[in-house]
């Protein structure tokens, strides 16, 4: 039985199943053409990193994957984004349901000003889970999943704001895991953290990809190289190059990618 699970996991990690398929995506903020004809396959149980200089559209692109851009005024999106072969921009799609499947972690740790427990239970509660026993179970699972359970298990009823920045960020990851997504979007999740907290989060990502598909935006090329399986390089709204991380960093096909990763600009 265990062997089977391991084999299945290995199969899933080895196989390149397309989890998210983006085809000819264009995004405009008013007249500003912020994403230009982006197409990309994001693979299941892999970590995909988006790199590029500030304002290149990498965060904007990330937010199209859980439709957080819908909140921005005057935004126009054309093209197709499918999650598990379902068009997420189709009329019938319920955005709140989509966001149950695609969780998000932000640049600044942003726990709610409530207890650690309530932070984690927030997502399940808004999706209708009331049963105390079940919530307890989800909270523990999620905190374990984010590798922070042992640090906070004695203070679940205390405010999450009393934790350090790195712990807060792992609380935010646990909070995202609690709604049981299959994809986890991370928007520069370590840029506000110290090196030790950063390496904890990176280790955690490595662990999480066994169960989740992870997409991470980072301004830190070393981080992309350390954690990701695939990397996409963005420049002024264009996806210049996308491919296997090691290949992209060792043998960039495009001159602009080479210039960026060798530090000639950005």
């Amino acid at each position: 039985m265990l062997q089977e699970i391991v084999t299945e996991m290995e199969r899933r990690i080895m196989a390149n199943n397309v989890k998210i398929k983006v085809e000819n995506l264009d995004l405009y903020y008013g007249d500003n053409h912020a994403l230009k004809n982006v197409s990309m396959d994001i693979y299941e149980n892999k970590i995909t990193a988006f790199i590029g200089p500030s304002g290149c559209g990498k965060s904007t692109f990330l937010k199209t994957l859980n439709r957080m851009n819908d909140l921005v005024e005057n935004v126009t999106i054309t093209g197709k984004v499918s999650l598990d072969s379902e068009d997420i921009y189709a009329q019938k799609v319920d955005v709140t349901q989509l966001r149950e499947h695609v969780g998000m972690v932000f640049q600044q740790p942003n726990p709610f000003p409530m207890s650690i427990y309530d932070n984690i239970a927030y997502g399940p509660r808004v999706h209708g889970i009331r049963d105390k026993h079940k919530l307890d179970q989800i909270v523990e699972e999620s905190l374990r999943g984010a590798a922070i359970f042992d640090e906070v298990k004695d203070r679940l009823k205390k405010s999450a704001l009393g934790l350090s920045g790195g712990q807060q960020q792992r609380i935010c990851i646990a909070r995202a895991l609690a709604v049981r997504p299959s994809v986890l979007l991370m928007d520069e999740p370590t840029s506000a953290l110290d090196p030790i907290s950063t390496s904890k989060i990176e280790d955690l990502m490595e662990e999480l990809k066994k169960q989740y598909t992870i997409v991470v935006v980072t301004h830190n090329m070393q981080q992309a190289l350390r954690v990701s399986d695939y990397t996409a390089f963005f420049l002024v709204g264009e996806c210049v190059e996308y491919g296997d991380t090691k290949t992209l960093f060792s043998y960039p096909q495009d001159k602009r990618t080479e210039d960026y990763i060798t530090g000639r600009f950005g």
Partner: peptide
């Protein structure tokens, strides 16, 4: 109340009203 708290709630799949009554007003 920080906009990022609202984003966090919406990203968890909460509706706008849930966000207002469960996060924004308590905060």
């Amino acid at each position: 109340v920080s906009q990022s708290l609202r984003s966090a709630s919406l990203a968890l799949g909460a509706t706008k009203l849930q966000t207002i009554f469960r996060v924004v007003i308590p905060a």
